Simulated assay, not measured.
Amino acid sequence: WVVAGVLVCALLPPSFPNAAAHGLSLALIAAELVLMGINLVLFGLVHLAVLLNKYILPHWFQRGRVMVAEISSGVIDHNGRANANMTQERNKLLFALEGARTYREYISVAGQLDKLPADLGEGGDEWRQDEGSDAYDAALCRIYLAVMRAAREGGDVPALGLALRTVLHRNFAGIDRLLRLRHARAGTKTAAEDFVAELCRSVQFLGAAGTTAYNE
């Protein structure tokens, strides 16, 4: 009936132009209000779905699946119960991560999330410890880490300077490519972190030693 009324108003003779225009305007306004209401409802449903999927449904889904498996088999599924508990813990940690106000709080919660297994959507620590990556050369990082550490601890300034001249350039061993990987919430590959930490210590040592020790 609404569509028919709009069409009638639009087809009225020219003797009633104002009435037809007002009627058509009111119909368009009503349609806009209806569409706005529908959009608001859809917007709310989307956010509700995101909230349920992120904080509520994974935990209850895991528990429900374990319960069904135990009823059908008659055996207690200890691994399933452990995963359900870890899923609940992950939801709490995700909520805490979003509420973190300082970098220290964020890193603390992110580190706890990285300790959770990969099948729960985390596994950051497992990825960091795994050196089998094509993104960078972990073996080369380990080699020069050992070279710099040995030279620094032995006080061999020329050898340390030579090693630093080799490694201090852009994307050494492909480390820069690790910046584009987001498999861990806190930190990156352990070999790369150890390499960068030793690099910083070596630069500080060389700066403290001064040019006199290098010339000797």
Score class of each variant (00 low, 15 high):
residue 195 F to Q: 00
residue 76 I to H: 08
residue 53 N to Q: 07
residue 190 T to D: 03
residue 208 A to H: 11
residue 192 A to R: 01
residue 88 Q to A: 10
residue 192 A to P: 02
residue 61 F to L: 14
residue 185 R to D: 01
residue 174 G to I: 05
residue 4 A to Y: 00
residue 214 Y to S: 14
residue 117 P to K: 09
residue 40 L to G: 10
residue 50 V to W: 02
residue 77 D to S: 03
residue 178 L to M: 15
residue 141 C to V: 04
residue 72 S to P: 01
residue 93 L to Q: 02
residue 135 A to N: 10
residue 48 L to T: 11
residue 158 P to G: 04
residue 123 G to I: 12
residue 210 G to F: 02
residue 131 E to R: 15
residue 209 A to E: 10
residue 83 N to T: 12
residue 87 T to L: 12
residue 143 I to W: 02
residue 55 Y to E: 01
residue 22 H to R: 07
residue 10 A to C: 03
residue 214 Y to E: 11
residue 190 T to E: 01
residue 62 Q to E: 09
residue 102 T to N: 13
residue 109 V to M: 05
residue 86 M to Y: 11
residue 95 F to Y: 12
residue 3 V to D: 11
residue 73 S to H: 02
residue 37 G to D: 06
residue 90 R to L: 15
residue 98 E to A: 11
residue 196 V to N: 09
residue 45 L to T: 06
residue 188 T to S: 13
residue 134 D to W: 05
residue 124 G to L: 03
residue 39 N to R: 09
residue 35 L to E: 05
residue 114 D to A: 08
residue 103 Y to W: 04
residue 67 M to L: 10
residue 162 L to Y: 05
residue 60 W to Y: 15
residue 6 V to E: 15
residue 138 A to R: 09
residue 195 F to K: 00
residue 171 N to C: 06
residue 69 A to D: 06
residue 70 E to Q: 13
residue 7 L to V: 15
residue 94 L to Q: 02
residue 193 E to N: 07
residue 15 S to A: 13
residue 197 A to R: 10
residue 193 E to W: 04
residue 95 F to P: 02
residue 38 I to M: 14
residue 201 R to S: 11
residue 196 V to C: 10
residue 109 V to F: 02
residue 164 L to W: 07
residue 2 V to K: 12
residue 108 S to R: 10
residue 34 V to K: 08
residue 155 G to M: 06
residue 143 I to H: 07
residue 62 Q to W: 13
residue 16 F to S: 14
residue 73 S to F: 01
